[in-house]
């Protein structure tokens, strides 16, 4: 019964937060209105959300967000340095990352994380969703890169979203 009137417990507070940010105000009236919208919108758009999102470990999610932000900063400095040093020293390479993740959301999050962090862009997901093709800007050891992606980003995502 509970699943019917609150289909997405994660989406509701997220939408309410977006509403508050959009209005640039944390007045009680806006909080109520935001929660109302956050409850009504997922209910009305239920057919578009085939997958039920569930977060298994909030603590790990926060830790992952911290690692992610730090890595974004480091990766940006590295990419900026590579661009300034010059295009002739680059060693671009395509690598294939085998995936252990299965849910749509986890794979999309992993692909987005890869795009923003270690000098890589995810290029193509294979038809059977088991392999992600990744382009690295400057890499001398593809095996080490795959290992880094798997331990640093994929393992925490698996724990957070798929238990």
């Amino acid at each position: 019964m509970k699943r019917d009137w609150l289909p997405h417990p994660v989406l509701t507070p997220a939408l309410a937060l977006v509403w508050l940010l959009l209005n640039n105000s944390f007045a009680p009236g806006h909080i109520v209105l935001g929660l109302l919208l956050g409850w009504a919108i997922p209910l009305l758009t239920l057919p578009f959300w085939p997958e039920r999102v569930r977060i298994y470990s909030l603590r790990r999610l926060i830790a992952f967000a911290g690692i992610f932000l730090y890595d974004v900063l480091i990766a940006n400095l590295a990419v900026a340095r590579l661009i300034l040093v010059g295009p002739r020293t680059l060693r671009p390479v395509f690598v294939v990352v085998p995936l252990d993740l299965t849910s749509d959301l986890a794979i999309s999050l992993l692909a987005n994380t890869i795009c923003l962090t270690p000098g890589t862009v995810s290029a193509h997901l294979s038809e059977d969703r088991r392999q992600l093709l990744v382009h690295a800007l400057d890499c001398d050891d593809p095996q080490a890169l795959v290992a880094t992606i798997k331990t640093r980003f994929e393992a925490p995502l698996k724990e957070i979203l798929e238990c």
Partner: peptide
């Protein structure tokens, strides 16, 4: 493919 890296990372930051 290498050009893709500049705008996605540096510009976003």
């Amino acid at each position: 493919y290498t050009r893709l890296h500049g705008p996605t990372k540096a510009t976003t930051l």
